[in-house]
Design a protein around this nucleic acid. Structure first.
Length: 309
DNA sequence: CCACAGGTGTGTC
DNA sequence: GACACACCTGTG
């Protein structure tokens, strides 16, 4: 893998394990918007960037300009992302670039045929390291909810109280302070989050008032962090695992939603109803990469419309 | 109009 | 600790 900069664009060159669709469309992130040219736009941290996997013509063009020294097959550009310092200080961590996904796929593929198919299919999928507070609120909203609705509620919340990016109609995800000042009424009538409004308000205020210490999450081991997150309003076992997996680099977290419930019972278990038992089974079968295995399996089952019942 | 999808909180045993 | 059941909203 090579990283090169041109203007304010960061190029990730010759990295097969980076496919925007597989990263942004697997239920881990809600604010990446697909553009007409198949690029994706999002705003996070101080960045408004566009991510695109280049096609053959675009790669040829860069080669003809002498920007590339050969016609690589895999080139992803992070447009408007900044320079090498931005890459090293933010994007490297955000896109989990230090992790060798090829190695992990190889390791998981040896477990069984089904997982092998899923790992082969999901080449290019990565688990993002997103902002912890944003993940807490996003996954509280996700509970008992559907992806299009989750996305729209999060967008409305950003418009309600997040900072506006100058000269655009884009909004940042709100800070703890900003969100704690939004009324339950607005969360219901504008963001349409329903009964989750109370959870969001309470959780934002618990964090603001230091009744809950976000910094502690990094210091606790996985099981302690999971238990601690469950003390937040609207956070149960599944949501806590999503927060740890997508917002705290805990690849052993194994969120059990209805889909995981279904495919675990189809492929690995025999009619186990208790989600906690399913999670224990997942961790014991897949080990420290349980969360990643789950993402590959989930993505594979959903994209191929595999009948899970 | 009703059925359905989808995790957490609460109450009961 | 295992189990119902209510909770809100958009879609079919």
């Amino acid at each position: 893998m090579i990283v090169k900069i041109k203007n304010k664009d960061i190029y990730i060159i010759n990295e097969k394990e980076f496919v925007p669709k597989n990263i942004f469309e697997n239920g881990q992130a809600f604010r990446w918007k697909k553009n007409y040219d198949n690029s994706y736009t999002a705003i996070m941290n101080k960045y408004v960037i566009e991510v695109k996997k280049l096609d053959e013509d675009e790669i040829s063009k860069l080669y003809n300009e002498d920007f590339l020294d050969e016609k690589y097959k895999d080139v992803v550009v992070l447009k408007n992302a900044g320079d090498i310092n931005d890459y090293n200080n933010f994007f490297k961590n955000y896109f989990d670039m230090e992790k060798d996904y090829k190695e992990i796929r190889k390791f998981l593929a040896e477990k069984d045929e089904n997982l092998k198919n899923a790992c082969d299919f999901g080449v290019g999928l990565r688990i993002l390291n997103q902002d912890l507070f944003e993940m807490i609120i996003s996954f509280i909203i996700s509970a008992n909810n559907q992806i299009p609705k989750i996305k729209s509620s999060i967008e409305k919340i950003c418009e309600l109280c997040g900072d506006k990016i100058e000269n655009t109609n884009l909004y940042k995800f709100p800070t703890v302070e900003q969100l704690s000042n939004v009324s339950i009424e607005d969360l219901k009538s504008v963001a349409r989050v329903g009964y989750r409004a109370e959870y969001i308000n309470k959780t934002a205020n618990m964090i603001k008032n230091k009744e809950f210490d976000l910094d502690k999450i990094n210091k606790l081991d996985y099981f302690e962090a999971h238990t601690y997150l469950c003390t937040l309003s609207g956070v149960g076992p599944k949501v806590a695992d999503c927060i740890l997996l997508f917002g705290n680099k805990r690849k052993e977290a194994f969120p059990v939603d209805t889909w995981v419930y279904k495919f675990m019972n189809k492929f690995y278990l025999d009619n186990v109803k208790n989600p906690k038992k399913i999670k224990e089974a997942g961790i014991s079968i897949f080990g420290e990469n349980a969360g990643l295995a789950q993402q590959y399996l989930f993505f594979y089952a959903r994209e191929n419309k595999i009948n899970l019942i």
